[in-house]
Amino acid sequence: MKSYKEQRRISLILRYTLLALLAIVWIFPIIWIILASFSYNDTGFVSTIWPEKFTLQNYIGIFTSKQFPFVHWMANTFFVAVISATLSTFVTICVAYVLSRLRFRLRKPFLQIALVLGMFPGFMSMIALYYILKSFNMLNLFGLILVYVGGAGLGFYVAKGFFDTIPRAIDEAAEMDGATKWQTFIHIGLPMSRPIIVYTALMAFIAPWIDFIFSGIILSSSGNSKNYTIAYGLYNMVHTTKGTSTLYFTQFIAGCVIIAIPITILFVIMQKFYVNGITAGADKG
């Protein structure tokens, strides 16, 4: 019989092997995407793992293309993301704080209505949203921001879960000392919720970079590709042009890689907040 130590060693080696294997399986397609972005290809389809010919032309092309104003898309998306993140965070935190810390008569109905509204598929609202924005002449980036911010009021679950974990005694103590609820919110609630603010802001910041549906519906009618955000612009690049689109396919991949990098980094940074948010929310339901 092998010694206990020996057994442990074998078990560890097995576990490392398994983990490495899984990691390779998981990361392999991602590496392939990055490789493909450096490949020379004019048929709109990448059929090999290792590019037959490496080129930087895709990256140069995407930044200099006249048809696909990539830099404009980046700027637009950044603009939308920053404003939407600021306003959405404010809205979400307000709602979450109120629902978690304050008690008022319509609190429960509000929670129930929010739950019900969240179960309607979002697509159902798209046609209506389009016409609402149109009637205010807002079929542009500002309209898109409004849509994102307007929806933020219902995305309070994670933040509410976080506030629920803060003992109420802290608030009560502050009120005993004569603080108004506003003061409690500003001087106690907000400082304590820094992690959840960061999380909410990052999530709201990322949303415009990955949403290709709403942005498409709202921005496409302008007919000016300089008004697009990056997700719709890239998506549009491979979906609307026939024939010649094959020429741009590798440029599309290059563009994708460029925006995937910052988002991935952001996400890796905030994974801690993400976990805290989910588990805290799950604790209290």
């Binding site: 509204l117 609202s125 209506a128």
Partner: peptide, 24 residues
């Protein structure tokens, strides 16, 4: 305070969620 803090979010929810949902 809840009235103050919820006013803007509720306008947003009514305009961009409830109205479209009822419409659909």
């Amino acid at each position: 305070l809840h009235v103050t803090l919820l006013a803007i979010p509720i306008i947003g929810i009514v305009a961009f969620t409830i109205l479209p949902t009822v419409y659909m």
